[in-house]
Design a protein around this nucleic acid. Structure first.
Lengths: 261, 261
DNA sequence: CCGTTTGGTTCCATTATTTGAAACTTAGTC
DNA sequence: GACTAAGTTTCAAATAATGGAACCAAACGG
């Protein structure tokens, strides 16, 4: 926890402030922000002013509170539609959900954390974005481990350093050593399991989505509960999952060569 | 189009670059960005580097292209869930959609542009975030006019200055004068119509969502087609729509007084 | 009713960052 | 192997950010 640390330049500080407002979860007053921030009054003030002026924050004049601005939502839309695998993967997730009947997660890696970019729920047809967009730990989730297993050495090292290794359940891999051993097993096996490592009763089988050059683009998981199924049953579907992952990767690849006029 | 103009400070420039990447709609090469940007090579380069380092952009090392980063998606999630009326309004939109059977839009104003933050479609149950997040013009949409009609004088002036007044259809109000007259009528009437001003065949009836102090929080519209219904029929439901808008406003209001511990 | 605190905004000399032309590397072409 | 295009680094000059302190306004307390 605590101080962010590496805030390079003014831009970094501004984004830091943005995050601070985001973390708060509701409109914040200047003084609240001042209390948590390391920045002196005047600096924070100007930062907020700039962000507000830029539409990244919105100042509610009635209350004098800052909230995240609409420009962010607009950018977000673009980010979701463009940078992530989500739009490409959508039909494939539908297919996988239909064929397995289980909950499907599509995730990408964000500096050691897992970001869920899309989801299919067994029960309801399509979840809101609000359900995706969540972040989770990498060291104790199927998608997280799948991505770490094929991560580049430096990226892996950085990611490991950022894991909390908090013991969520009795099955959580709570040391870097255990995790590294597991990653090797995952590489050998070709897919990762979550053996109730994050939440009791929740199990999954996850596969990485790899580019042709071997870079990790994301991960895909089929998730269920111990009440409904077993790991073996989930593993039985890993072939299908890998196939879907490969098709997503292929399409992602072709997307990246614009082919313009 | 062209130069943004008011780019205050480094942060402004950085966000400008972010927008530039977002606008592009797909991963962009450095040189492409350089071509459109006003910034000199080295400046743009460092800006991109900073944003990448901050996780707002992601550099694809295979292709040397920049895309919007995951941090943005994360922020976006927070923005959508927090700053907008969307989460508060959700159940009310459901109710309105169920009672009217028509398409419902929830919008907010973003510097003269309309931002759709949530939506209920007559056909499918719940649309993805990707469908919301869109922006549209204010001067020729129901929600846009509803918000402008109750906007503060300075805000209105600024917004008017930003309208293109492009003549989308034969019914489009294509001058500030026509628009101002219409806004007055809307204020008197209490709700706004879209008389096929944006798209032929598309009509709607929109109401503003106003805070107790009279500030515009957003707008709500019931949209349909000339094939399915008439303006009169839509107007008949304006009472219901206003009621829903009032309830959203009331709840938004209570949200803003945290009541903490 | 006036002194005080709290919350927010502005000043301005100092300091540190950003700037951008140009030089430099690669990595492709021909 | 000379020529180009694309990306990266340098460095003194220009500019923008900094933050302590002063300031203002409104709410509070006696």
């Amino acid at each position: 926890m605590g101080a962010e640390g590496h805030a390079d330049g003014t831009v970094g500080k501004a984004l830091d402030v943005l995050d601070m407002v985001a973390r708060h979860g509701r409109p914040v007053r200047f003084s609240d922000l001042l209390a948590q921030s390391e920045y002196p009054k005047a600096t924070l003030y100007r930062l907020l002013q700039t962000l507000t002026h830029q539409g990244m924050l919105a100042l509610d004049p009635d209350q004098g509170t800052y909230a995240l601005g609409v420009r962010l939502v607009r950018l977000a839309h673009a980010a979701w539609a463009q940078s992530s695998l989500a739009p490409i993967a959508r039909p494939y997730l539908d297919e996988l959900a239909a064929k397995t009947g289980e909950t499907i997660h599509l995730a990408q890696m964000d500096l050691g954390q897992v970001l869920y970019v899309d989801k299919r729920n067994a029960a309801r047809p399509v979840e809101m974005f609000a359900q995706a967009g969540k972040v989770g730990p990498a060291y104790c989730t199927g998608v997280g481990k799948a991505m770490l297993a094929w991560a580049a050495p430096e990226a892996l090292e950085q990611a490991i350093a950022r894991q909390s290794f908090h013991r969520h359940t009795a099955h959580t891999l709570d040391t870097p050593e255990k995790l590294l051993a597991e990653l090797q097993a995952i590489r050998a096996r070709g897919h990762a399991f979550d053996r109730e490592e994050h939440e009791a009763g929740i199990i999954c089988c996850a596969v990485p989505i790899l580019s042709r050059s071997g870079r990790v683009l994301g991960a895909l998981s089929v998730t269920s509960t111990t009440a409904r199924t077993t790991l073996d049953a989930l593993e039985a579907q890993s072939g299908l999952t890998k196939d879907i992952a490969a098709r997503i990767a292929a399409e992602a690849e072709s997307w990246r060569f614009p082919e313009q006029h």
